[in-house]
């Protein structure tokens, strides 16, 4: 990048410097879902077309972006900013879990989708949330695990194939 900037016009490097400065200065966390935002609420929370009855809980903003790119989800999000990691001393108090509980108390939520990673700590986080959110009258769902689209059953690993059998849907 340094060599490219040496040969680029001054206006280009000035614009880049301003953009980097703006990222640090203007970007903050959405007061509702803790996604990145340039105002008090992020663009998704400000959008009146999003369904406020469904909240998708993700570990970080990169996961939110990945789900947004599918175009298949029209609800709101809640970003935890991490996953439970008992061995590193990361307990529930270090994630945005109490903030999620408050949202369930104050917002008309009917379903919470737990979209944490399917690894050991992501599963622990989902199980903890399931327990924590149980007192609320909401449907709690988890992302399905299974064979990738266009995949070949012969080459799918045994755990994923086993999970896809357990979570099979009516056809």
């Amino acid at each position: 990048m340094a060599f490219y900037l040496l040969h680029a016009p001054d206006s280009y490097s000035d614009a880049l410097a301003e953009a980097i400065h703006a990222v640090k200065k203007e970007l903050k966390l959405c007061a509702r879902c803790f996604n990145l935002a340039d105002a008090e609420l992020c663009a998704i929370c400000r959008n009146p077309k999003r369904d406020p009855h469904v909240i998708c809980v993700v570990e970080d903003t990169k996961d939110l972006i990945a789900i947004e790119q599918t175009g298949a989800f029209q609800g709101l999000y809640h970003v935890l900013h991490g996953q439970l990691d008992p061995l590193q001393g990361v307990g529930p108090e270090k994630l945005k879990i109490e903030e999620l509980v408050l949202r369930l108390r104050d917002e008309p939520v009917k379903e919470v989708i737990l979209a944490t990673n399917p690894d050991a700590n992501g599963t622990a986080t989902a199980l903890y949330l399931q327990r924590r959110l149980k007192p609320f009258d909401v449907k709690i769902t988890r992302l399905a695990q299974g064979i990738p689209v266009g995949g070949d059953i012969e080459y799918v690993d045994t755990q994923t194939l086993g999970a896809s059998l357990k979570q099979r849907t009516e056809f």
Partner: peptide
């Protein structure tokens, strides 16, 4: 132990 607060929370605390 770093794991103790979490163990105590899920086992000993009443929800």
């Amino acid at each position: 132990l770093k794991t103790l607060p979490f163990l105590q929370e899920v086992l000993l605390k009443k929800k």
